[in-house]
Design a protein around this nucleic acid. Structure first.
Length: 506
RNA sequence: GCGCCUCUAGCUCAAUGGUAGAGCAGUGGACUUUUAAUCCAUUGGUUCAGGGUUCGAGCCCCUGGGGGCGCACCA
């Protein structure tokens, strides 16, 4: 029995446009149910992914048919009707494969049903593997079952979505039609997986620490504030993982890492999303030099794992990440950039004058170290395209880092820059509770003076340090930015599945 | 927050201030080897919203909204 003609009570079914299109597809569902079929079955047993079919039969000669019976499932992306034959393109996560549907094989009713399917419908198929006369590997369909209906039409089958707003808001649609988006998130997964493997191989264990903090410390950023009802107190969403992980080093866990979401109440740009993913690791008995080596290993290994190459395109330049990465002190980079030696031991007036010469405006409370860092950002940072470890940050801007063993004004710290972007930050950890208290008090003073990104004194963290933290090297890596680098993404929104957007207006 | 750009059919895009169009998708038809199938026919519009100028506004002006880019912010 051919399906009964669709009724058109509202007049919608004769029209076009989204409303009519949805009405037509919903009517097909009603029609199926009226015929006793379930358009949303509970499960489907497949024997092969599409990639597995291709792997087993990819070399099949044109015009041959096997007796290999397979069950595959996926979304129907394209349909080419040719009289008593239909060719359809099926896609699952692994691959795409052609379906070959012959009226003579499936029978008149099933053929009519298949011809009535819409692009975007999920189907489960049973059939045999064959290759068409043109040599296209296909499944010759014997049975076909609708697994779920696409009531809403897919975007343009060839051009996909181009409007970035729609792509980010409707990431589900973006993933259906844009190969590049699917690839970006595979790269992201491979990077995170690779990091876990590398760290595990070095004896690190993965931990989870609180997202809700009483004190938002470990970085210099404005936090999000939330409220706990039962405790009747404000809490902060974490801006870093650092202070809890180092408590675990005090506890003797020796090597820990966490990959977690952190939240900073700052601007949104192609490089910033309010919530993003940070990997932080801490290793007892290590110092900054060990951590620099680890950073390089993590990222180079991730490139191999995600891309099967260490060569990446950075701003149009082919860069082999496997080549050793440059190291340079911040003060030396500034000196080269402005032609004048700088050091945080210099009087603040002198540095203030230099800053003015280079268009850097200084807040009154800034000391020499902070001004040098601002000078670095204004004059040197933009030149760091190839991977560069910038080292020796001033003590003033590094309240959790250990003082350089050879220079009391600098710290044993580095930031990794690639393509002008900061990707990682690490240091020999400050483990002297007395000195840490003084650094915190400096921060508190800045906070009291109106710096809303400064943190206060974390007494519990100081108590932990008083129990004794071994010498420790720590690292933080922005996972989104590593994923951007390896995926070649120009915006952080391209590697965050659901980036922060204003609510949609209707 | 500031500046520049942008918003037209479900999707991708056109349209000197003068009747809003095309391709894809959809609908009807032909076709047993297609590959973004092809061919014939055809439906589909609050031009982001609201004002204004004009005989006449998708287009010009103002206000508002979404988005993009840049700046600022982001140790």
């Amino acid at each position: 029995m051919p399906p009964a003609p669709l009724e058109d009570e509202s007049g919608l079914l004769s029209g076009s446009g989204l409303v009519a299109e949805k009405a037509k597809r919903l009517a097909k569902l009603d029609d199926m149910r009226a015929g006793g079929a379930e358009p949303y079955p509970y499960r489907f047993d497949r024997t092969h992914t599409l990639a597995e079919v291709r792997a087993e039969h990819g070399s099949l000669e044109a015009g041959t048919e096997t007796d290999a019976r397979v069950a595959v499932a996926g979304r129907m992306m394209l349909k080419r009707e040719q009289g008593k034959l239909i060719f359809a393109t099926l896609r699952d996560r692994s691959d795409e494969l052609q379906l070959f549907i012959s009226k003579a094989t499936v029978g008149d009713d099933a053929f009519e049903f298949i011809a009535n399917l819409d692009l975007g419908d999920w189907v489960g198929v049973g059939g045999v593997v064959m290759a068409t006369r043109k040599g296209e590997l296909s499944v010759k369909v014997e049975t076909l079952q609708l697994l779920s209906k696409a009531v809403r039409p897919l975007p343009d089958k060839w051009k996909g979505l181009t409007d970035t707003d729609t792509r980010y808001r409707q990431r589900y649609a973006d993933l259906i039609v844009n190969e590049q988006a699917r690839r970006n998130f595979q790269v992201r997964h491979a990077v995170i997986s690779s990091f876990r493997n590398t760290l595990s191989g070095h004896g690190y264990i993965e931990v989870e620490t609180p997202v809700l903090h009483v004190e938002a410390g470990g970085a210099h950023a404005r936090p999000f504030i939330t409220h706990h009802n039962t405790l009747d107190m404000n809490l902060y969403l974490r801006i870093a993982l650092e202070l809890h992980l180092k408590r675990l080093i005090v506890g003797g866990m020796e090597r820990v890492f966490e990959i977690g979401r952190i939240f900073r109440n700052e601007g949104i740009s192609t490089r910033h999303n309010p919530e993003f993913t940070m990997m932080e690791s801490y290793q007892a008995f290590a110092d900054v030099s060990d951590i620099i080596a680890l950073t390089e290993e993590l990222i180079v290994t991730a490139a191999r794992d995600a891309l099967a190459t260490t060569v990446v395109d950075i701003d149009g330049e082919q860069v082999d990440l496997a080549e050793p990465w440059r190291q340079a002190r911040m003060i030396d980079l500034v000196a080269v950039a402005i032609g004048v030696e700088v050091h945080p031991s210099q009087p603040v007036e002198q540095l203030r004058a230099l800053a003015a010469q280079h268009g850097v405006s200084c807040a009154p409370r800034w000391g020499s170290g902070k001004i040098i860092e601002e000078l670095f950002e204004a004059t040197a940072e933009h030149m760091l395209v190839r991977p560069t470890f910038v080292t020796g940050h001033p003590v003033e801007t590094s309240p959790l880092a250990r003082t350089d063993r050879n220079d009391p004004f600098l710290t044993e710290r580095f930031e990794l820059f690639v393509n002008r972007r900061e990707l990682a930050n690490g240091y020999s950890e400050l483990n002297d509770p007395v000195e840490q208290r003084m650094r915190f008090e400096d921060e508190q003073a800045a906070k009291d003076a109106g710096d809303d990104e400064a943190t206060g004194v974390d007494e519990d963290y100081l108590r932990a340090l008083e129990y004794g933290m071994p010498p420790t090297g720590g690292l933080g890596i922005g996972m989104d930015r590593v994923a951007m680098l390896l995926a070649g993404a120009q915006s952080i929104k391209e590697i965050i599945l659901f980036p922060t957007l204003r609510p949609e207006v209707h």
